[in-house]
């Protein structure tokens, strides 16, 4: 199994009439990876996940999960793959345990297996105290944890989590993220999660893909993505000056470690290879101007994300 990708999309395309929701997507997710799927609303994240589970058919191209074609072998794929839908709901009139038992039965587990598993799972996701409460009393965070328990009951090899943290407060989101990290680490489950909350993805994903209007615009480990998208620059700095003499721009540009200088309104935007802020402030002072403010715009995924999202017009 190792070496072979767990999720593999080749030329995957989905059109709704004239509108292309997913456009010639190529993806490979290795075993044990936590793969972040990023993109603005309507980028095609959910559509891709639905195709991976055989819940909607690709217009062209293929997607395979654990070597099985999701369109042709949907049932086998769903036996191995857990799926947390983006608007998951439970039967409100049933308790947490009853809901889980029902999901277990739909997966063909034996009653004894279900009996032993349900309390363990509720324990694992941290809601054992509400096992016998009906779901209509649950908060969003509790429902999401129950959702993860429902995904785990089938002992999945791979799980697809569609916006697992949406609608949760920071603490709730953190809990869910920790659960995801631990299921990948302790049970070697391959995880594909979609989100538009970058810092979360950055924190727990080994690899990310950025989707915009159905196209894959960047893919790779977080750090390599940064290099890829910023070219040489690794850090961007914004300067606010008392005045901007034209020659200053040239001087800054020639400064060692500065990749580019751009003027935006009354500010200057510098992309740097490394931290040369001390040098910059000295240079500004030497050239007859004074620094009012120097701001690091960040050098994480945020930049990349914003860059693509602005390009995507989303």
């Amino acid at each position: 199994m190792s070496g072979q990708p767990v999720i593999e999309a080749v030329n995957l395309t989905k059109s709704y009439g004239a509108f292309t929701a997913v456009n010639k997507l190529d993806l490979r997710v290795k075993e044990g990876e936590v793969y972040g799927f990023l993109g603005p609303n309507g980028a095609g994240k959910t559509t891709t996940i639905l195709m991976a589970l055989g819940l909607t058919e690709p217009t062209s191209g293929t997607i395979k999960v654990c070597g099985l074609n999701s369109t042709r072998d949907a049932l086998k794929v769903k036996r191995m793959a857990g799926y947390l839908p983006e608007n998951l709901g439970f039967y409100d009139d049933l308790t947490a345990s009853e809901n889980l038992r029902y999901v277990g039965r739909l997966n063909g587990l034996s009653e004894t297996e279900i009996k032993s598993k349900v309390p363990l799972l509720l324990e694992q996701v941290g809601i054992p105290q509400v096992a016998d409460k009906t779901v209509d009393t649950f908060s969003k965070g509790m429902k999401q944890r129950l959702g993860i328990a429902a995904v785990l009951i089938k002992n999945p090899k791979v799980v697809f989590l569609d916006e697992p943290t949406s609608g949760l407060d920071p603490e709730g989101a953190n809990n869910v993220l920790n659960l995801i990290t631990s299921m990948s680490r302790d049970q070697n489950i391959t995880v594909m999660l979609s989100s538009h909350l970058l810092h979360q993805v950055q924190k727990i994903c080994h690899k990310v893909a950025i989707l915009s209007r159905g196209r894959l615009v960047a893919e790779g480990p977080v750090d390599s993505l940064e290099r890829q998208t910023f070219g040489k620059g690794k850090m961007s700095v914004e300067l606010e000056l008392t005045s901007t003499p034209p020659e200053l721009i040239g001087v800054l540009q020639r400064l060692d470690g500065v990749a580019s200088v751009e003027r935006s309104g009354d500010r200057l935007l510098l992309l740097c290879d490394r931290d040369v802020r001390a040098n910059i402030s000295r240079t500004v002072a030497q050239n007859g101007s004074a620094l009012l403010q120097m701001k690091i715009l960040g050098h994480g995924l945020e930049e990349i994300y914003l860059k693509y999202f602005q390009e995507g017009g989303a």
């Binding site: 589970l53 819940l55 049932l75 086998k76 769903k78 036996r79 857990g82 799926y83 947390l84 839908p85 608007n87 998951l88 709901g89 439970f90 039967y91 999901v103 739909l106 997966n107 063909g108 429902a150 995904v151 089938k154």
Partner: peptide, 10 residues
């Protein structure tokens, strides 16, 4: 959302 829950099962 329970339809999605059920459809996610094999």
């Amino acid at each position: 959302g329970t339809l999605a829950l059920v459809m996610a099962q094999p």
